[in-house]
Write a protein that binds this DNA or RNA. Structure first.
Lengths: 330, 330
DNA sequence: GATCTGCATGAAACCGGTTACATCAAGGGC
DNA sequence: GCCCTTGATGTAACCGGTTTCATGCAGATC
């Protein structure tokens, strides 16, 4: 591999000049520049990022910390980030925090050791204080996580409103007994969604019934278990609001196994709108999270911050995608 | 951040000694070592990877080139690679080749500029010659792609046999008119699967009928279109072998829309066994690709190669996962 | 024509490690 | 007791860039 030194020799200039041409930091005379450019082309020069980073302090990499690789929602965000980073000169290093703040701290430490220029944290539950310290050190953007005491950039959507809208949709179609399959206990997004559910109930003067709420963990299995539990308890419901699409899939299957039709007997609303949801039988009505866009937008914010620019705030909303798993009560 | 110099001063030794302690390259006297270790702990020393890489020639990163981020199968492999890499000291840089050899070449070039120590190529269609040149330069493992003229390590599964088994399964249950929704034209895996399909037919003395084969592209939409097309043409079939699970989802939905029950009227076999498949209605019978294992195994192979070791060949097979989308012909 | 100014360029230090080589003290062999 | 070996450690060069500062040259000013 050709080094900057080789280029310099070939173009009869000094290393410094070559560096200037590459980085456009200082004006270089036209003919000199041409000679350097030609030499770089001839030798197929590819700058050594390691050296560059060591000298210049920038590694041109950004760290992405995702949670539980394999979860559709977080994965899609990560993909959005990666796609948003392509052709920016920055390369992504993707690591998994596994929804544990200790693991997250660890992986972040190795990312720092790699001199990443910026950090994108998808979800996670790192304490605000740690985050703030991190952000004082290098640009950090938080995705899919709301946090008070956080002054840095943050890309998130309003889960409470989404939960409200999902529930209102069912209510408007005449449903009054709406079961909820909750996400992981204490998970802020899950909590917000249930809060929205309650608001919609209050608004419609439907008393809140705790029996209709079953716990879950965002898995399809928890959707099955939730429905089985409700049915075994003899609890009546005509609508189901699932924590996410995976749980909705499980719920839909359990209903099927118990001879309940969707949507004729029970309506189901999911959350996320993952790729498969449009092709369920019946296609799933769900709250679409703009996961890809969230990822891309956070990449844009980070790049802007790294360049000292600011990027216009972009309003991302969770929207109801009305398909065929919901019907009017008859 | 503390540097090796700071450690050296604090432990009253030279930089070299600190380096030796860190890398265990040369014996260091017990008390000296202890002093250094203590100093590192005190100062929370985290070696600068950039400097390390520049000096030592190793970057402790590996490049992962995936195709079309967002495709369940390739994504799962990538996840496997990432998980296989965790705690090895190597960090993954993930890029998307987008199923275009020009894009792949480009992203690989930037990975080389980043001094990645090894490369994992998932799928793709880079010409064998390029690959060989690449492999001469740095350890490279090929995943989910079979290639003659390739002497390097390669993790793949036998798609022909899988296609054969899927078809045989249907035949054994009495099906004789089995439609195929093909994957992308010319995609080697897709071609192999259809070859296996033909072999099973031949073995059972069922004449091959070209009308039963419809084109597709691994998308759910193509599953819908395929079934619609067959139905419109009035072509009769009792079984469907889909290129992958996404296509199977689409096919299943199209059958539903046309009043055909699965599996009572038509049996469906998918390919991949992605997470959602077990929760379809009915749960999808499919050929399980050990995607995660493939990723992990290829990571293991690469790490071993980087350490100059060899890792025992591991036989990975595609297996039939029998669920409820297939029934015996009545 | 001498002096000043400004622009293009070169020399060298520096980033934080690794490593070949030099040095030095202690122990062993005669 | 002297010399050689051996093992531990220090010194300094080096990896491939960036950046500060010095330098030299041309044109402008008087």
């Amino acid at each position: 591999m050709a080094t900057i030194q080789d280029i310099a020799k070939r173009a009869n200039v000094s290393k410094a000049t070559v560096s200037r041409v590459i980085n456009n930091t200082t004006p270089v005379a036209g003919r000199t520049r041409d000679a350097v450019v030609a030499a770089m082309k001839d030798l197929k020069f590819q700058p050594n990022m390691m050296a560059r980073s060591l000298a210049g302090g920038r590694s041109m990499t950004v760290g992405i910390v995702t949670q539980k690789i394999g979860s559709p929602f977080y994965d899609t965000i990560a993909q959005g980030v990666i796609s948003g980073l392509s052709n920016t000169g920055y390369s992504p290093i993707l690591v998994d925090g596994q929804w544990e703040s200790s693991t997250s701290s660890e992986v972040i430490a190795t990312l720092l050791g790699r001199n990443v220029d910026g950090l994108i944290l998808i979800g996670g539950d790192l304490p605000a204080a740690n985050l703030q310290k991190l952000h004082d050190r290098l640009p950090t953007v938080l995705v899919a996580r709301e946090l008070k005491d956080w002054s840095g950039p943050c890309v998130h959507v309003d889960n409470e409103t989404a939960g409200y809208r999902a529930t209102r949709h069912l209510i408007q179609l005449g449903h009054r007994s709406i079961a909820v399959i909750r996400g992981i206990e204490g998970h802020p997004n899950a909590v917000d969604r249930v809060d929205g559910y309650r608001r919609a109930l209050d608004e419609a003067n439907i008393p809140f019934n705790d029996d209709l709420i079953v716990s879950g963990d965002f898995s399809a299995q928890s959707g099955i278990l939730g429905i089985e539990f409700l049915l075994n308890q003899g609890i009546r419901f005509t609508g189901v609001f699932a924590a996410n699409d995976m749980a909705a899939f499980g719920a839909r299957l359990a209903l099927h196994r118990n001879g309940l039709r969707v949507p004729e007997d029970v309506s189901v609303v999911g959350f996320d709108d993952q790729a498969e949801s449009a092709f369920m039988t019946p296609p799933l009505t769900t709250m679409r999270q703009p996961a890809t866009e969230m990822g891309q937008h956070s990449a844009a914010i980070l790049i802007a911050a790294l360049d000292g620019r600011k990027v216009p705030e972009q309003r991302l909303e969770i929207q109801l995608v009305s398909r065929e798993s919901v019907a009017r009560m008859t």
